[in-house]
């Protein structure tokens, strides 16, 4: 295995074009365990972290730009970001331990294409976009278009994500992310649920986005649950409808982390809880943190 740490995007694109046997990485927190278990054995490792744009986190007038290889601790420790996107910040902060946090990236979390990746539902409900470097310049797609199946993405060989853009939320909007794991930390979501809720001045929901992790091959938007909220206040009834729609939207598997029945049921529970928390944040009445 050879190692290369390009300092420009062009250099990285060139290196990837030079061999079909290459692999980009950021924190390597997914990649190294996979190499250790014998699954890819790349000939060339391309470290993206020495490219400034890939590790920068910057606040613009209307949006944030997050380098695809920036460590997630840089997000959770960014007070302005965490205030505007508490759910996304918490989701990123749930990835592994402090040790992992100092390495793990949103780009890696997304491109590893695990259905259980914690930051992905939170990015999707916030409408995040991925800026992709290609041999012919860059292209932009929405985050929900990246993962196509467990372990697979829509990126072509030689492409990589440079950064994510996420628009600042409108007024009276809150996001949240909750997951179920048997342990409090160091665990992979059995079910994850992200939501972003916008309320009008009367407390009726004007916009809702709900996405579930670990209950289908890729992160799943629950449009039925969103529809059940639009135009209504957040009440026990609407939350029950959200829960039912979320459970119905699941297409999970039985595996060592959970069963189909469990995942469906808990997806409903978490969807209800996460919507409630996001709505409280939208209304400015949230008292508790979502994380942990």
């Amino acid at each position: 295995m050879d190692y290369l740490a390009p300092i420009t995007i062009e250099e990285a694109v060139g290196a990837l074009a030079s061999t079909s046997d290459s692999r980009v990485f950021a924190g390597a927190t997914d990649l190294i365990p996979q190499i250790r278990s014998g699954r890819p054995e790349p000939g060339l490792l391309v470290d993206l972290k020495r490219i400034d744009r890939l590790t920068a986190v910057t606040e613009g007038d209307t949006s944030w730009t997050i380098g695809a290889a920036a460590p997630t601790s840089g997000l959770t420790e960014n007070i302005a970001f965490s205030r505007q996107f508490p759910g996304l910040s918490e989701a990123a902060g749930l990835i592994g331990s402090d040790q992992i946090q100092n390495r793990s990236s949103l780009g890696g979390n997304l491109c590893n294409a695990s259905p259980a990746a914690d930051s992905v539902p939170a990015m999707i409900v916030n409408g995040a976009r991925a800026i992709i470097a290609t041999p012919d310049g860059t292209r932009t797609i929405t985050v929900d278009q990246v993962a196509t199946a467990p372990g697979h993405t829509s990126l072509e060989p030689g492409e990589f994500i440079v950064e994510f853009e996420v628009d600042k939320p409108p007024a009276r909007t809150g996001d949240a992310y909750l997951r179920m794991t048997p342990r409090t930390e160091m665990d992979i979501a059995v079910v994850g649920a992200g939501a972003r809720i916008t309320l009008d001045a009367d407390g009726n929901c004007t916009e809702a986005r709900i996405a579930l992790g670990a209950v289908a091959p890729t992160v799943r938007r629950v449009t039925d649950a969103e529809a059940a909220l639009i135009g209504h206040p957040i009440t026990d009834d609407t939350l029950s409808a959200v829960a039912a729609a979320a459970s119905a939207a699941c297409d999970p598997i039985d595996d060592k982390r959970g069963t189909i029945a469990y995942r469906k049921q808990v997806a409903g529970v978490l969807a209800k809880r996460v919507v409630k928390l996001a709505a409280e944040r939208a209304a400015g009445t949230a008292t508790e943190n979502g994380a942990h």
Binding site: R183, M186, D187, K256
Partner: peptide
Amino acid sequence: FNEEYIHNADGTLDNASFLDYRIPVASD
């Protein structure tokens, strides 16, 4: 609560790591 050997039907062990064989962490 959590610790167990989980075997696949073919007799192979499915959780041979500390991530999936969950011993308690400090926050538990």
